[in-house]
């Protein structure tokens, strides 16, 4: 196998596998930037996966399926927002509950949809002209769905929004110091609701990608832990949408390589690689990472009560 073929398959697969992680991570970054940890990503993704499949299957429109996936992810996130922002319950417990609830509900609703092949899948694109470029063409401009490019575009837009606009400033200040934000006239509750809802929308799309594009079928538990990787990637990206881009695709590449390299290295070790990476990231961010600690939203995980400190 020559170098070019390795490069092509690794990059191309990294993009394809990275998509659900990227969408999920971008959403979680926004929720956490506003100060709300949502461990329910796994649940929102699986609900999105089910919804996207069910709607695409019954209407024949995968685009509509993804739209509904976003909605159900958003609705599930609103539940979390209500419990954590309005009732001010523990964010971690509520998020875990949401994950379990999502997995259970999707499994229940999905009973009759199990094992059916999807007629209309989200098409893979071959970009005219660009796909002809040697190496770069097959690497970047073939076999990807619209969500790959949309996700990259979204990462850039969300970065601009977060760091270059007043809205972004409002979101960050709510996550950093809600009482100050409140005193400046920012509606903390509204901002948190919106960010958590937005996070749910993106997680829903990420899940939907799995069932209408990545592996077009519905199977119970098909997200298989991706939601938890999203949580780790959010920290790895230091709550920065552009770094999420690298994180998601780097993880995708590791995941692909763990199968590609099996012929040369012990498969047990390779299988560990992506997860080892997640643990290492968390350890670095937890231990040495003054940089990380500085960048974590100050009020992350804390409910906001007006007048309390």
């Amino acid at each position: 196998m020559d170098f070019a073929s390795w490069l092509i398959s690794t990059v191309s697969r990294a993009l394809a596998f990275g998509v659900p992680l990227l969408w999920g991570t971008l959403g979680e970054i926004y929720a956490e930037r506003a100060g709300v940890v949502n461990l329910g990503v796994e649940g929102m993704m699986i609900l999105g996966a089910f919804m996207a499949f069910a709607v695409s299957q019954s209407t024949g429109h995968p685009g509509l399926g993804l739209f509904c996936a976003a909605l159900i992810g958003g609705v599930a996130a609103l539940l979390h927002a209500f419990v954590t922002v309005t009732i001010r319950a523990n964010q971690y417990v509520s998020g875990l509950a949401l994950s379990m609830f999502g997995l259970g509900l999707a499994g229940l609703l999905g009973r009759g949809w199990e094992g059916k092949p999807l007629g209309n899948t989200l098409p893979t694109l071959t970009i005219p002209g660009l796909s002809r470029i040697p190496v770069l063409g097959p690497m970047l401009f073939q076999d990807q769905t619209i969500l790959t490019y949309l996700g990259i575009f979204l990462a850039v837009v969300l970065w601009l929004l977060l760091f270059r606009t007043r809205w972004g400033l409002a979101i960050r200040s709510v996550g950093e110091n809600p009482s100050t934000a409140d005193s400046l006239g920012i509606n903390v509750t509204l901002v948190r609701y919106l960010c958590v809802f937005f996070g749910g929308l993106l997680a829903g799309v990420g899940g939907g990608y799995l069932s209408v594009a990545y592996r077009p079928a519905w199977t119970e538990g098909m997200t298989a832990g991706m939601g938890w990787i999203v949580i780790a990637l959010t920290i790895f990206a230091a709550w920065d949408p552009l770094q999420a881009l690298w994180g998601a695709f780097f993880f995708g590449a590791l995941y692909h390589l763990s199968y590609r390299l099996q012929a040369y290295l012990a498969p047990e070790l390779l299988k560990l690689m992506p997860y080892l990476f997640a643990i290492v990231v968390l350890a670095i961010s937890g231990l040495g990472g003054a940089r990380w600690r500085r960048r974590a939203p100050g009020a992350l995980g804390l409910p906001y009560v007006r007048g309390e400190r």
């Binding site: 398959s9 990545y214 199977t219 298989a224 995941y255 199968y259 099996q262 047990e268």
Partner: peptide, 21 residues
Amino acid sequence: RWIYEWFNPAAAKEATEALIA
């Protein structure tokens, strides 16, 4: 290619892609 799981569609997919490559 081993995926070390009875059920993990994403792992099965990447293993297949690796074999195709």
